[in-house]
């Protein structure tokens, strides 16, 4: 597979106009990317993510969907640049994500992990300012711009009233919003979320996805979200990448991916799929008997 921006690989500091024009509508391009976990090269691999491709535009929400151990998190780590693909490439605006230096990468990609551990407690505003690290140098004394961006990020997730609270004294849902605010403070192009709804109740889950949809539309983020929540995916995703045991089974709109026999096969559970009036699929699970 050959694409115009593949050779020569552009240097991070100097993108050529051609490449920017070629990718004006595609921001993230995953091209035949694969990965293998093996204790050492001579042994059989523990897990293989087979080569897969998809593309995402600014403002789009892509859900990586699949049961446990399907390779969802591995794919997200590949996109984030933390892992290097065994074969294929992953481009963000024409740059291979793994080849970006850490600081440049953090200016373009924000990664919201499942949980953020704290050894020593910090205030919410201090935590959000961590997102400005990639935009600073040296001792990184806080600038007025940093303050403005951090405040704006807190406002965008509806958490400005929490600014002076301690991170370990707020609820799980509030914490998730603050972690999202820190990611927004990075002013990224690409927002990656690894099972962000895991510890949230259903109300907080809907809140979070509503915010993501609004933010993706307003700030033109490309949002990639790893989840196994079928109905949230059906309702909020623009594109679904369906994985099972390291294989990509289908990429497409929720309506095209949410087929009863396909989902029953992937999730090993009897279910029905119906379309709502908004054209979104809705999944109902029922008892195996």
């Amino acid at each position: 597979m050959s694409t115009p921006h593949r050779t020569p690989t552009p240097s991070p500091s100097n993108p050529t106009p051609d490449q920017q024009r070629a990718n004006s509508d595609v921001r993230l391009s995953v091209e035949q990317a694969s990965y293998v976990y093996a204790p050492n090269p001579s042994q059989a691999p523990l897990f293989t993510l087979e080569a897969l491709s998809f593309q995402a535009k600014p403002g789009e929400i892509v859900a990586i969907l699949g049961p446990n151990a399907s390779g969802k998190s591995t794919l997200l780590k590949l996109i984030s640049g933390a892992l290097q693909p065994l074969s294929g490439r992953i481009f963000l605006n024409g740059f291979a994500t793994h080849d970006l230096p850490p600081q440049i990468r953090a200016q373009r990609i924000a990664f919201v992990q499942q949980e953020s551990r704290l050894l020593f407690p910090s205030r919410v505003w201090e935590f959000v300012l961590q997102g400005r690290h990639a935009h600073g140098h040296g001792l990184r004394f806080v600038t007025e711009e940093d303050m403005a961006v951090a405040n704006n990020a807190l406002t965008q997730v509806g958490a400005s009233h929490l600014a002076d609270r301690w991170m370990d004294k707020i609820s799980g849902g509030e914490k998730q919003r603050v972690i999202l605010a820190r990611a927004l403070a990075q002013q990224p192009l690409l927002l990656l979320l690894d099972e962000p709804t895991l510890h949230l109740d259903i109300g907080a889950q809907v809140d979070l996805l509503e915010s993501l949809r609004r933010l993706a539309a307003e700030n033109r983020y490309t949002v990639i979200i790893v989840t196994h929540e079928l109905n949230l995916t059906g309702e909020y995703a623009d594109q679904v990448v369906l994985l099972q045991k390291g294989k990509c089974l289908r990429v497409g709109t929720p309506a095209s991916v949410f087929q009863r026999d396909l989902l029953e096969h992937v999730f090993q559970a009897p279910l029905t799929v119906e379309m709502t009036s908004s054209g979104r699929p809705r999944v109902t699970l029922f008892n195996k008997q």
């Binding site: 984030s80 850490p102 600081q103 953090a106 953020s116 050894l119 690290h133 990075q186």
Partner: peptide, 10 residues
């Protein structure tokens, strides 16, 4: 906050 988290923050 952890090695991975620090890496993703730059």
């Amino acid at each position: 906050a952890g090695e991975k988290e620090a890496m993703h923050l730059g």
